[in-house]
Amino acid sequence: MAEMLRMEHVTTVYGINKMLIDVSIKVDKGKCVSLLGSNGAGKSTLIKAILGLVKVVEGKIYFEGKDIIHYSTHRVISLGISIAPEGKRIFPKLTVLENLRMGAYLVKEKKEIERRLEELVFPYFPRLKERLNQIAGTLSGGEQSMLNIGRALMGNPKLMIFDEPSFGLAPILIQETAEIIKKINREKGITVLLVEQNANMALEITHYGYFLQKGQIIAEGTPEELKKEEIIRKAYF
């Protein structure tokens, strides 16, 4: 199976603390892979390492065979990676449409931007279509998280990274979000790396998972295998 993203023995340092220690993960093309772990386990650091936002002192990161470890963030994105960042990292003073346009920043043709709006975003988020000219900061929390995902979809990525999509959402919205992530993966064929604290939700929709604790991968496997792991059962079930 063709691989999309591979991290090999990655160690990062922040100040004197090692945030990730010898982390290796692999995301195959077309798959939906989850990265689980509690608060402070190093999940955000792992994403930052991929995006070139923290210093990797050891190890390698490959995207489609290319070593991307010294790439700056915008170059990593230009390879075909999109991210729906944690929290409400939408641009609060821009309109919904302007936010979505920023998601397709690397696209020059207006027609292509229109096409992506119609084919990638509106089918999943009809609500955003009704609110195109609204200032994004005035949307409800659920709508903002839709915009966050929609904006990342506008990049028409090969790999889409979701950073804590369930964070701060009501249970019913978590279920809705999980469905959308599943559809993005299964219908559009977009490879997904889902970083989540909510293991229940993540294991429901992913093909493979990694469990991160104190900066180290302590378990990995299919959802069925992971659910049997003692350490995860203790933490979650």
Binding site: I77, R89, M102, G103
Partner: peptide
């Protein structure tokens, strides 16, 4: 930072 995550 969010802008750079869009490829800016």
């Amino acid at each position: 930072e969010a802008a750079s995550m869009m490829g800016v």
